[in-house]
């Protein structure tokens, strides 16, 4: 029993990290129909700058804040320089964002060095709680809490505020929103920045979670996020949470019981979804 609870907590924590990455992807796709292959690059930049400032100042909160700021700024630059010149041309978008991903990844090696770096969680989040026989690792619970918090706050913004209303309307029909006198480009930019910030947050949280960071991590981890976006349905925010948890749990249990198949199980999940529901579990039409 304690094993199953342990694996579940594990899976939920991984799921939340993937969700933070996938949520940005899915919103950006839903609103601008841009599939951002550079998302993994924002993820590692968040991880490296966050870890760097965490180790410099010794404060994890500062690390997280720096990571998010890096994500927001990089998101701004990416949207302006990389995405804006090629709006509306899908093939160019896909090609160019992949190229930018590479540049981001190599720049990490220039700035922070090409070697792997070890990361340790802050003292307050080290160790674990003991509930009966069940060991609950603090940091994993922390990730789950942060992920849920982000989900609740963003859902609130999306569903209850005027900005959220505009974003949701933009996902449905952006020409109409624009013709109603709303600066949709500004909304695009904001959503892109928020999505990048979430990716960077995911990066720093994942860096501490896995205990080691390296430049190729971004592309590897963003593949999971792509799988989640496909399973959850492109453009669906709650779909990406559901699919991320599904993928996280599948990965955690498979990694324990059949380690060789832990990546394959996600591909299998995605294939099944694609055959029976190509628009994704929560996607429309």
């Amino acid at each position: 029993m304690d094993l199953i609870i342990g694996l579940t907590v594990n899976g939920l924590a991984t799921g939340m990290l993937i969700f933070l990455l996938a949520a940005g992807l899915t919103l950006i796709f839903g609103l601008m129909s841009v599939l951002n292959f550079a998302h993994g690059g924002l993820f590692i930049w968040g991880a490296y700058t966050g870890v760097w400032s965490f180790q410099m100042t010794g404060s994890f909160i500062v690390g997280i804040i720096i990571a998010i700021i890096t994500g927001l700024l990089l998101g701004l630059v990416t949207e302006r320089l990389i995405i804006r010149p090629v709006y509306g041309n899908h093939i160019q978008q896909i090609l160019i964002t992949l190229g930018f991903m590479l540049v981001l990844q190599e720049f990490i090696k220039v700035v922070f060095g090409p070697d792997q770096k070890a990361v340790f969680p802050p003292e307050i989040l080290q160790g674990s709680f003991l509930v009966g026989d069940i060991v609950l690792i603090k940091y994993r619970l922390f990730i789950i809490a942060v992920g849920l918090l982000i989900f609740i706050v963003s859902s609130f913004i999306l569903k209850r505020t005027r900005v959220g209303l505009i974003v949701r309307a933009g996902v449905m029909n952006k020409e109409m929103v624009q013709s109603l006198g709303i600066n949709i480009k500004l909304v695009f930019m904001l959503v892109f920045m928020v999505g990048s910030g979430m990716a960077a947050l995911s990066g720093i949280l994942h860096a501490v979670y896995s205990g080691v960071i390296y430049a190729e991590m971004g592309l590897e981890f963003s593949i999971l996020a792509f799988i989640v976006v496909v399973i959850g349905g492109m453009g669906s925010f709650s779909g990406s949470l559901f699919a991320a948890i599904l993928v996280g749990l599948a990965q955690a249990f498979m990694a324990y019981y059949v380690p060789a198949l832990s990546l394959a199980v996600n591909m299998l999940l995605m294939t099944v979804v694609l055959i029976f529901r190509p628009q994704g579990l929560f996607g429309k039409g």
Partner: peptide, 24 residues
């Protein structure tokens, strides 16, 4: 046959993931 009926985005993503699977 599985993925080409989907939009270009999906195909790009899926092939990336599949190649990753072959690597692993």
């Amino acid at each position: 046959a599985l993925t080409l009926r989907l939009k270009s985005h999906f195909y790009a993503m899926l092939t990336l993931a599949l190649a990753g699977l072959f690597l692993v």
